[in-house]
Simulated scan of single mutants.
Amino acid sequence: MKKSLLIIALAISIISCNKETQTKEAAAFKTAYIDTAKLMEEYTEAKDVTEKYKAKSDEAAKKLEVQEANFKADAAYFEKNAQANGQAWAQQKGAELQQRQQQLQYAAQTMAQQLQGSHATEMDTLVKNVKKFIKDYGKEKGYDYLYGTGETASVLYAKDNYDITNEVIKLLNEKYASSAKKEEATEAKKEEKK
């Protein structure tokens, strides 16, 4: 009986020492989180990409509006003059108008798909670069874990003092601004050579 009590006491002391070691190791982890939704809303490059494709979309819509207005004018002319010009003319012009309408619809769909594809590709590249930046940032600052919150939350709770979102946004915006200035300087030099 004494031997079994001694074995149990020894086992309990080993387990408690092991738990203390695990607790000390867990307490030594440096962690933080980033609100990824806020990051993408406030990151200047992400805003610029979104604005760029919004402008392209608006420009494409204006071009299509002109073509659509011309089509509507031709359709109105057709309706007005269909009976006066005869059935053969009406059938021929009706078929032409129908073909133009299909071409306009196809052009609109194609343009929308191209813009969406280009925007998605550019945003994917941007997200990939942000992830790399965050990984490098985490290594540089000595973090063991960086969590993401936002639309695809992987953290259910964290104290606010672990939130480094604003710091990362600031650094990303500074990096983007400096790269934009370098591009502008390069473009200016190219223009001077011409």
Rank of each mutant, 00 (worst) to 15 (best):
D35W: 00
E167W: 02
Q99F: 12
L126E: 05
K19W: 02
T125L: 03
F133L: 00
T186W: 03
Q116R: 01
A158G: 13
K19N: 03
A82V: 07
Q113Y: 03
F133E: 00
N18R: 08
T21M: 06
G94H: 01
T36I: 09
I169Y: 07
K194R: 03
E151V: 13
E68I: 14
K80V: 06
Q114R: 13
A73P: 14
G142C: 06
V130Q: 06
K54Y: 07
A75K: 03
S13L: 10
I164P: 01
Y137Q: 01
I8Y: 10
A107H: 09
S118V: 02
T149G: 06
T23L: 11
K170F: 03
E41C: 07
Y106I: 13
A9D: 04
Q113D: 06
S57R: 13
G94Y: 00
K132D: 01
K175F: 11
M123I: 09
K128N: 12
Q114C: 05
I169K: 11
Q87I: 12
N85T: 02
T21S: 15
A60I: 08
K139M: 00
K54G: 12
K131F: 00
C17M: 13
K141N: 03
K30V: 12
N70D: 08
T21W: 10
N166P: 07
E42P: 06
E167H: 01
L146R: 03
K19V: 15
V168E: 02
K47T: 04
L5N: 14
A69S: 15
E20V: 04
C17R: 06
A61D: 09
Y145K: 06
A188K: 14
K189I: 05
G150K: 01
G117E: 06
I134K: 05
A76F: 12
N166G: 07
M40A: 12
D160T: 03
L171D: 02
K62F: 09
E174D: 04
M111R: 09
K132S: 08
K47A: 13
Y162F: 13
E79L: 14
E191D: 12
A11H: 02
V130S: 05
S179H: 06
E187K: 14
M1S: 15
L39H: 11
V168A: 09
M111K: 15
T23Y: 06
A73N: 15
S154C: 03
L64Y: 13
Q99Y: 15
Y137D: 03
T44G: 10
Y53F: 14
L6G: 10
M123T: 04
L104R: 09
F29W: 07
A60F: 15
Q102T: 11
K181P: 05
Y53H: 08
T152V: 08
Y43S: 00
D163W: 01
L115F: 04
D124E: 07
T23N: 04
D163A: 08
Q87H: 03
A28N: 05
S4A: 12
L5M: 05
A26P: 01
S179F: 00
A32P: 08
N161R: 02
I12M: 08
Y162I: 05
D48N: 07
I134P: 02
